[in-house]
């Protein structure tokens, strides 16, 4: 048998095995997961809205109240992570607890807690953004692009 046909046979075997894996592997219950994400994610957003309304009622401008709401939600996400509750929430809610700003706080605080044992410089300092880093980087990239677009449309 030539090496080529051996390789081809291996490839076919791998493809057949992959099909078998797809068959046997349990599927995530997407509908149920979506419902949980909607409920918990929705509750987090409702809480954010209540906090925003509270600051507005205190006489803050929309801009200030928005910033204060973000700060409050980040604090809550960090607090729940520190208490060891946010990861339990995440098991059920999935994207529902990752997407809101509380999830971003969770990613940063969880990393800080985990790597604190390696010290403040090489542990916390070097690895605090190990999960949140991609969000930050591509958030900055998006901001630069949008800034450029805005600048160009102003020149028009």
């Amino acid at each position: 048998m030539t090496p080529d046909s051996n390789e081809e046979r291996k490839k076919i075997e791998e493809q057949e095995y992959q099909q078998l894996v797809e068959q046997v592997r349990p599927r995530p219950n997407i509908l149920l997961n979506c419902i949980w994400a909607f409920i918990i994610g929705g509750l987090i957003c409702t809480l954010g809205q209540l906090i925003l309304d509270y600051f507005r009622a205190q006489g803050m401008s929309m801009e200030d109240a928005g910033a204060m709401t973000a700060v409050s939600m980040i604090f809550l996400g960090a607090l729940l992570t520190g208490l060891g509750w946010y990861d339990e929430l995440g098991k059920k809610a999935g994207a529902g607890s990752i997407i809101p700003i509380t999830g971003f706080a969770n990613a940063i605080v969880a990393s800080a807690m985990e790597y604190k044992r390696e010290g403040y410089i090489f542990g916390v300092g070097a690895r605090i953004f190990s999960i949140a880093g991609p969000t930050l980087l591509f958030g900055f990239v998006a901001a630069v692009i949008i800034g450029l677009v805005k600048y160009l449309t102003m020149l028009w």
Binding site: G90, A93, S97, I98, N106, M113
Partner: peptide, 8 residues
């Protein structure tokens, strides 16, 4: 992931 990270 870090142990306190909320992942499904």
């Amino acid at each position: 992931f870090p142990t306190e990270q909320g992942v499904q």
